[in-house]
Amino acid sequence: MNITAQIKKLTIKNSDGQCLVKDCSFKLHEGKTLCLIGESGSGKTLTSKAMLGMLPSSMTMTGEMIFQGLDLRSISRRGWQRVRGKRIGVINQHPEQSLHPAIPIGRQLSDLVRSHLPLTRAEAERKAKAMLARVSLPRIDAMMGSYPSELSGGMSQRVMIAMALLLEPELLLADEPTSALDVMTQAEILALLNEIVKERKMSMLFITHDLNIANYLADSIAIMHQGEIVEYGTVSDVQNQPKHPYTRELWYYHQKFNVD
């Protein structure tokens, strides 16, 4: 099984020297999903930002990040432009904040295509429309001309997924993409995401605080607590033999409140 990305002993400190992420190591395999679980402030989002080279400049980082044989820490500013969006896709928690409010959806999609591929605007738009159809959005021609404020939360998140997958990246970073949605929409989006990731053999780092989602999606899970990965392994391993007291507590509460 091919390894898409490998993180070794990643440590992130803020300008006061405080450790926000400490000695994190994990691997992402082709066609597999790793769920990174933890409560807010445990360092999950910072880890994914580090993997996109988007940490605030006030923070310092040590450790190793290898993506497809490429050392992510050695990439230049210009180099990052070619990696982001093209080889590593990203989906955020708040789709309405990730889309530019004053630019039509279609234009934002075709800009993305044209930033990475030498296509004309018409060709880029054709590609974008095909992807919008793939994520089951209705009335695509009208959708291309509309503004983000005219879309519902679930629809914006579908657009975001379309954007993240448009250039068929090898790795997808999904940072709580469904936590701002209602339960029904959440289930639909997760099913869609799971389907496409499996279909295209991408590897995904899925960040969540919800164990139900992790159970549904994950091939393996990592549990983060106060900046450290306290548990890492396949779902059944972690579930059956939790090592860290935090994990045991997490599981206890999960089972207690999920009667179904």
Partner: peptide, 12 residues
């Protein structure tokens, strides 16, 4: 956030 998101998509 939307400008940061555009950067994270690698917009030229």
């Amino acid at each position: 956030p939307y400008l940061e998101a555009a950067i994270s998509r690698g917009i030229k």
